[in-house]
């Protein structure tokens, strides 16, 4: 097998012999992310209607008030979940396909957007800037901290005037935290750190415990894409709900406890 005939020239951008509607998935992803980014940016800069009664919008939590900071407090915190998601292994796949077209879909010619210019050879995540994706684990640590605050908020969302109070909002807050946890603790890095890094799962008692953890994380990790989308929507919905109440467009229905 030493004979080499003319190797096929690199596939032309966006050319393919596929006959299915291969562009649908990247298009939906592009639209989905686009809408979220527009909404989140607007809300982050709006600096209003993010807090009412027991509810604090997740975009603004934890609320950091600094005298010298003249902008929306959301900007002080949103970079953490944004950075966590931007370096997430699922989101990377999704936006490399949908926005960078590298490649847009399987078997469809991609463009060398990641080498930053067409002249350069493709280097992917092996060189600057995309080598930075490797900070994902640090973003995870921070995201876990933020998630802690959100859980704290969710508990507060069930207390009003020192009494237990469950409103529709409380349920939305708790659901949001559950979804976010399913996403965060199904993270590929988390899976690696809790046990995936081991070669032998049975070699010590610690390893056996780590194996059980790894198995549990794996269950969530298998549906990481699902949780990524569900939690993305749930955060936006939670924020939107807070905005609706805070702007008095609707009022929060009380199910248990004193009314708001």
């Amino acid at each position: 097998m030493n004979q080499t005939k003319s190797a096929l020239a690199p596939q032309k951008p966006l050319s393919t012999e596929r006959r299915d509607i291969w562009w649908l998935e990247p298009a939906l992803v592009a639209i989905g992310f686009g809408l979220f980014i527009i909404y989140a940016t607007w809300r982050a800069f709006e600096n209003n209607f993010y807090e009412i009664g027991p509810y604090l919008s997740p975009f603004y939590s934890p609320k950091i008030v600094l005298d010298w900071w003249k902008f929306s407090p959301a900007l002080l915190i949103l970079w953490v979940p944004a950075g966590f998601r931007a370096t997430c292994y699922y989101y990377r796949k999704a936006y490399y396909r949908a926005y960078f077209l590298s490649p847009p879909a399987c078997g469809v010619g991609g463009i060398n957007a990641l080498g930053l210019s067409q002249g350069k050879k493709y280097c992917g995540e092996s060189t600057f800037p995309l080598v930075i994706q490797n900070i994902h684990r640090y973003m995870l640590y921070l995201a876990i901290a933020v998630l802690g605050f959100l859980w704290y908020d969710a508990i507060l969302a069930c207390i009003w005037q020192n009494q237990l109070r469950i409103g529709v909002g409380s349920i939305i807050f708790i659901a949001n935290c559950l979804f976010l946890s399913a996403y965060t603790f199904g993270c590929h890095v988390f899976r690696h750190l809790v046990g995936g890094k081991l070669d032998c799962f049975s070699c010590s008692q610690t390893a056996k415990t780590q194996f059980s953890l790894w198995e549990a994380v794996t269950k969530f990790n298998e549906h990481h894409m699902f949780w990524a989308w569900v939690s993305l929507f749930s955060v936006a919905i939670t924020d939107f709900y807070v905005r609706l109440i805070a702007s008095h467009s609707i009022s929060d229905l009380t199910l248990i406890g004193p009314p708001l």
């Binding site: 292994y89 990377r92 992917g124 060189t127 995936g196």
Partner: peptide, 30 residues
């Protein structure tokens, strides 16, 4: 590092090996 985990390998694998999630990403983390 050249792999940008766009998962086409996993999509076409006739043996249903979760190439990206179970092999490549764990190696990247190592």
């Amino acid at each position: 590092g050249f792999c940008n985990i766009t998962k086409c390998c996993t999509e076409v694998c006739p043996e249903d090996i979760h190439i990206t999630d179970n092999a490549i990403i764990p190696l990247k983390e190592r």
